[in-house]
């Protein structure tokens, strides 16, 4: 197994899929000559040329719609959003065309498309650059929403997303790009829609995804010191949600914390809680506790920003609550 950064794992996935299938191309702002705003596409222009690594003007609606159109006639575009905050300008094409064209056409026309880029907050980027929108996309039938937390997952899931015949919203993280981890050698594919148990445990389940996985792991470590054995379930795919994995863990631990980066109101965690109360009511020993961003736009000040964000300490506190401790 090679140790790669999350960034290089994504780069390898793009390279391998572009080598494998000429229909796959990458399009977005600064993806080619600049080598990518976050260098995910480093070296791809050199290897594949300007036909397949396409710099666009700053026109999210325009180039996303061009990608959707190209996908409707059988190409497999990967559209890079410099950050997912800017995808709001393209949301008409994502929601009204990509997600619906198969249905509206009675199954005649599909949209095998990946829209990818970093989502959520980094550090002190202010309110407009620090937003986790996965629940918006997860609300839409027709879309898949994928959010890897580790380099291995990043590679295996991006390759599967590119091969998927549906529009996939693939949300990365600026704070994840430099993370290192082991990535299996050779062809490495992870099916969409499967959660991963990042740490097995018996006392409480921490359900998380993307940037809440690392804090959940840290929380589990400090909980272990107190004698609480936490299971960490990384959703990896938000839609379709791996209901079986969630319910199996709840059946084992009977106590649940759901952590996510974004806002709580109508968030991903709300959907997970809905599932658990419906399907596993009798398994629960205590109410499910949620951890999420404070219900405010992200402040710039670093102390306020820290106070707004979900972190390991908040997850530990939530576990205490779920376990009626402290």
């Amino acid at each position: 197994m090679a140790v790669l950064t999350y960034r290089d794992a994504l780069n390898a996935a793009l390279r391998e899929e572009m080598q494998r299938d000429d229909n796959v191309f990458l399009m977005g702002e600064e993806v080619a000559e600049y080598d990518g705003a976050y260098k995910v596409s480093r070296g791809l222009l050199k290897e594949f040329g300007a036909r397949r690594v396409v710099d666009t003007p700053i026109a999210e609606l325009g180039f996303t719609g061009i990608g959707v159109g190209a996908a409707m006639v059988g190409l497999r575009p990967v559209i890079e959003m410099m950050t997912m905050n800017f995808a709001l300008l393209a949301i008409d094409q994502i929601v009204n065309t990509a997600a619906k064209v198969r249905y509206m056409s009675g199954g005649q026309i599909g949209c095998p498309l990946v829209i990818r880029g970093p989502g959520g907050a980094a550090l002190q980027l202010g309110a407009q650059h620090s937003q986790a929108f996965e629940s918006w996309y997860a609300n839409i039938p027709g879309l898949k929403v994928v959010m890897p937390a580790t380099p291995a997952d990043a590679k295996g899931l991006l390759k599967s997303a590119i091969r998927d015949d549906n529009p996939v919203i693939f949300i990365e993280g600026e704070m994840l790009y430099n993370q290192k981890g082991e990535v299996p050698d050779g062809e490495h594919l992870i099916p969409l829609g499967r959660a991963d148990i990042k740490r097995p445990g018996n006392d409480v389940t921490i359900i998380c995804h993307s940037k809440t996985v690392a804090p959940a792991m840290n929380a589990a470590k400090s909980l272990a010191d107190e004698g609480v054995d936490a299971e960490v379930v990384d959703l990896r795919t938000i839609r379709p949600l791996d209901q079986d994995a969630i319910l199996a863990s709840v059946a084992k631990t009977h106590r649940v914390v759901v952590a996510e980066e974004g806002w709580g109101f109508a968030g991903v965690g709300a959907q997970v809680v809905d599932l658990i109360q419906r399907e596993a009511f009798d398994d629960l020993d205590s109410p499910v506790i949620r951890v999420h961003q404070a219900d405010v736009p992200m402040p710039y000040n670093k102390h306020l920003e820290k106070a707004a964000k979900a972190d390991a300490a908040k997850i530990v506190a939530a576990v205490h609550q779920a376990c009626y401790r402290g």
């Binding site: 719609g65 990608g67 159109g69 190209a70």
Partner: peptide, 13 residues
């Protein structure tokens, strides 16, 4: 107007 980028995308393809 949503069909305008789509038509542009068919031409791109």
């Amino acid at each position: 107007g949503s069909q305008i980028p789509l038509g542009t995308g068919f031409a791109f393809a």
